[in-house]
Every structure is written in C-alpha cells, then in structure tokens.
C-alpha cells in the first residue's frame, strides 16, 4: 500500500516506512540512543530527498525523546538548571543551523553537505566504536589498573566567568561551556536531523565533568527543545518537514522501542556496541559509494 508524501513529493510504501521506524525504534530501545543518525541516512537511501529526510527526522527524534525524558525525570535524573543553559545554546545553534541549511539549499549544495556530514560523523562513531568493541572482546577480563575517571584537575574551563552552582550535576562551573556545547550540537542537530546525544553525552562527562547519573536525562531534556526548534524553523524557512513521513516513522518507532527494550536486557553491552558499530559502518560505506560512484544522471537541472 503506497502513500504520496506531500513534501518529499514521492510515492512510498507505508509499511516500509513503518517497518524502518520500528527497526530504528528497536535500536534506540536497545541502545538508549536517539537513532536519528541511522534514520536520516536510511530515508535518503529510500530515495527521499536529503533535505526532507533531515527536516522530517527532527519531529521523529523529538517524539522518541519525550518518553525517555519522562522516565529520567521520575528518577530525578535530569539537571534542569544546566539543561537550561545547554538548551539555550542549542536553540540558538539549531536556528543558525537551519539558516545555514537554507543558504546551502539556495546554492544547491545542501544534499552533498548533508552526505558529507554523515560520512564524517558516522565514520568517526563507527570506527571508534569498532575499536573499543574489538579491544574489550579480545582482552575480556576486568582490568583493575588504570581506572578511568573524569579530569578533575582544574583546566581553563574553570577559569571562565559567570560561575554557577549546579547541584544535581555536582558542579560549580561557568555557564559559558554548557552554552557553547549546546550551540555546537544544536547546529549539527539542525543540519543533520539527529538529536546529537552521541556527541553531547561524552562532552558533558569529559568537558563539563557532570555527575553521570544525570547525563542521559539532561541530554534528552535539551534534545526535546532543540529538535522542537529545528522542526519549527525547518518547516517555516525551508518547508522540508513532511508530517506524513514523520507520523509514520513515529508510529513504527513506538512499537519498535518496546521490542528493543525487551531484547536489550538479555545482551551484553560489549556485543551491542559491536553490532551497532557494524551497522554504522555499513551505512557509512553506502554513503561513501553513493558519493564516489558516477551517478545515473550526471547532470541535474533545477528551475528557480
């Protein structure tokens, strides 16, 4: 059964979209990740224009983050104060990201930029995850030496002004780094249609030194606002949010997440990381070949 996507302007099988939504939903239930970094490339592979894939992915990430935030909120694992600074940077960043998106779109360069961003982003994630996973699989024993901790020595970050106390995160730091991190992830989030938790979480732990209890909840909390902002500006400025596409993906995602959570508790984290790394690298390889191979239509014409 196919449906016409009004914004993407293509006919597509409903079940295919719902199925992919389920698949990515299961992955995010399994890994506790947003899944945007896999969903957007998959949509592009299906023939949906990259601009629409990115635009429509924002509401999908938003929807799949909400239930996560509620769960973490109940366990009191959200630091709203530092979250506020992250999201204020993030909202500005994602707005600028959408403007940048529009600029590149008018020059006709946006599709290639999206693909390049994904190539770098996924390549980096996939390779680092594959290394880590291989390392732990090879020497699968508990190392008692070299216990990794956060950088507690004072760095330049602690010298910045506007210091505030963040009780939940057990921090006394300047408000500037959270705003900057939020901003940077916001730009990427808007341009790639991802939540950005994969960059945000390590940044929160290593750069800010946040208490790890609140890291996941706070990251999801700010993702909600950033993706809501992206959704608004993408549809207002670029008209690239296909609500039918988003709704179908969300439908699939809801079902998939339940399945993922159930499988997840039975598998070891090291193997999960390995599986995800392989998936990410496969998607990455596909993007690379798409970029390198001579396209079917060498020239494209656009009327404006």
């Amino acid at each position: 059964m196919s449906i016409y996507l009004p914004i993407a302007e293509i006919n597509i099988n409903i079940f295919l979209i719902v199925f992919i939504g389920m698949l990515v939903g299961a992955l995010s239930g399994l890994f506790g990740v947003g899944g945007g970094f896999l969903m957007t490339p998959l949509l592009i592979f299906l023939g949906i224009p990259p601009v629409v894939a990115v635009g429509s992915e924002a509401p999908h990430v938003l929807a799949s983050s909400v239930s996560g935030v509620i769960a973490h909120w109940r366990k009191k694992n959200v630091d709203f104060k530092i979250g506020f600074f992250l999201l204020s940077g993030g909202v500005v960043g994602s707005t600028i990201g959408v403007y940048l998106f529009k600029l590149l779109k008018t020059y006709g360069q946006i599709d290639i930029v999206i693909q390049f961003l994904f190539l770098i982003f996924l390549g980096f994630i996939g390779i680092s995850m594959a290394f880590e996973s291989a390392k732990t699989t090879i020497k699968n024993y508990r190392t008692t030496s070299a216990i990794r901790t956060k950088l507690h020595q004072h760095s330049w970050i602690h010298g910045l002004p506007f210091k505030l106390r963040f009780h939940r995160s057990k921090l006394y730091i300047s408000a500037i780094p959270p705003i900057l991190i939020g901003f940077f992830v916001g730009v990427l989030s808007a341009m790639m249609g991802v939540g950005g938790g994969f960059i945000m979480i390590p940044a929160m732990v290593y750069l800010l030194g946040m208490s790890t209890n609140v890291v996941v909840g706070t990251s999801l909390f700010q993702i909600i606002f950033v993706t809501a902002n992206s959704t608004f500006f993408q549809s207002y400025l670029n008209q690239t949010v296909d609500i039918v596409l988003s709704a179908l993906m969300i439908l699939g995602g809801v079902i998939g997440a339940q399945i993922g959570v159930r499988i997840g508790s039975k598998l070891k984290a090291e193997y999960l990381r390995g599986i995800l790394a392989i998936l990410v690298l496969l998607v990455c390889a596909k993007i690379l070949t798409d970029l390198i191979l001579t396209p079917f239509d060498v020239f494209t014409t656009s009327i404006s």
Binding site: I147, K150, T212
Partner: peptide, 22 residues
Amino acid sequence: EPLDVLTTQGVTEIMKNEARDE
C-alpha cells in the same frame, strides 16, 4: 542497575565507577 545507554567505552567506565562509588 545496568546502564540503559550505549555510549563510548570511556564514558561507560566513568558511569560504572561513579555508580559503584555511590
């Protein structure tokens, strides 16, 4: 409780250590 998020090895280790300390 086991971690419900998959992130880098370093972050995972820090999370586990903090949980153990607590």
